[in-house]
Nucleic acid binder design. Structure first.
Lengths: 127, 127
DNA sequence: CGGCATCCTTGGAGATACTG
DNA sequence: CAGTATCTCCAAGGATGCCG
C-alpha cells in the first residue's frame, strides 16, 4: 500500500492538518498567555497588553484576531469616547483552557527531569 | 545589569519560561508527529522518515536530537554494516503523550466549531 | 544507512509611525 | 484607546553534497 499520497480524506484520521493547526496555536509564543489572561474574565485591549510583559501592540492584535477568527474569543466594541474594546473568552475558548492547563501541569511537573536530561546531554557533548 | 535572565524565580509561577519551551515544542511542526510515531515502539531513522510524509532528513535529525536532549527519546546505535540507529521513547517521552493526546482529542472534537467560526469570520470580512 | 555542514529562501516577529 | 500600514531582520526550514 502506498503511503505517499499527500492528502487522505480519511475519516479515521479526522483532519490531521487541522489538529496540527491547533497544536501550532498552542505552541504560539503569545496565544496561551492571552487565553490564560482572559481566563480571569473580560479584558480591554491595553489591559491585556500591560499584563503581558514584552508583547507588542501588533502581536497582541494579531493574536486576538486569530483567536477571534477561530471562535475562541469575542470582541465587543463600546462606542464610547475614547473607544473601548473588550475581549472575552467564548465557551469554546474556555474549554481549550482545560487540556492546555493539563499540558502546563505536565510541563511543570517534569521540568526537573528535563533540566537534568539536558545537563547530562550537554555534558556528554562537551566531553 | 543583565535583563536576559528569566524574570521572576517565583515558585508560584514555577518557571514560566520553561513551560513555554514545552508548549513551543508541542507546537513544533514535527515533534508531536515523531513522538506519536515512536509511541508504537522503537523505530529506525529511515523508518520514521518514511512514515512522516514531507519531513526532510535534516528536520528529522534536529527533531530527534532535541527530543533526545530533553530526555524524551533514547538513541541506540547498532554497529552493524550498514549502521543501524534505533530511537525509542523514554518513560518521560511516553508520559508526555498523555496530555498531548488529550489536547489532540480536544482539537478533533472541536474542529467543526472552529471551521464554522472561521467561515463565519471570513464571510463577514469579505461580505 | 545515518548524520553533519553549507547555502538559500521565506515567513513572520517586532519596531515605528500613522489613522480613526 | 484601538487598530492598521510599512519596513527591517532573523531564524526556521528545505535542498544539496560529503563523510563515517
Amino acid at each position: 500500500m502506498d503511503m505517499t499520497a499527500p492528502r487522505r480524506p480519511n475519516p479515521a484520521h479526522g483532519d490531521c492538518s487541522k489538529v496540527s493547526q491547533i497544536l501550532a496555536r498552542v505552541g504560539d509564543k503569545w496565544t496561551v498567555l492571552v487565553v490564560m489572561m482572559l481566563g480571569g474574565g473580560p479584558k480591554r485591549f491595553n489591559e491585556i497588553r500591560r499584563s503581558i510583559e514584552g508583547i507588542s501592540q501588533q502581536m497582541l492584535t494579531r493574536t486576538l484576531r486569530g483567536l477571534e477568527r477561530d471562535g475562541m474569543v469575542t470582541r465587543t466594541i463600546y462606542p464610547t469616547i475614547p473607544p473601548q474594546v473588550e475581549y472575552e473568552l467564548t465557551p469554546l475558548g474556555r474549554s481549550l483552557l482545560e487540556p492546555v492547563m493539563a499540558l502546563g501541569s505536565w510541563a511543570q511537573a517534569h521540568i526537573p527531569s528535563i533540566d537534568a536530561a539536558r545537563a547530562e546531554f550537554d555534558r556528554r557533548k562537551a566531553g
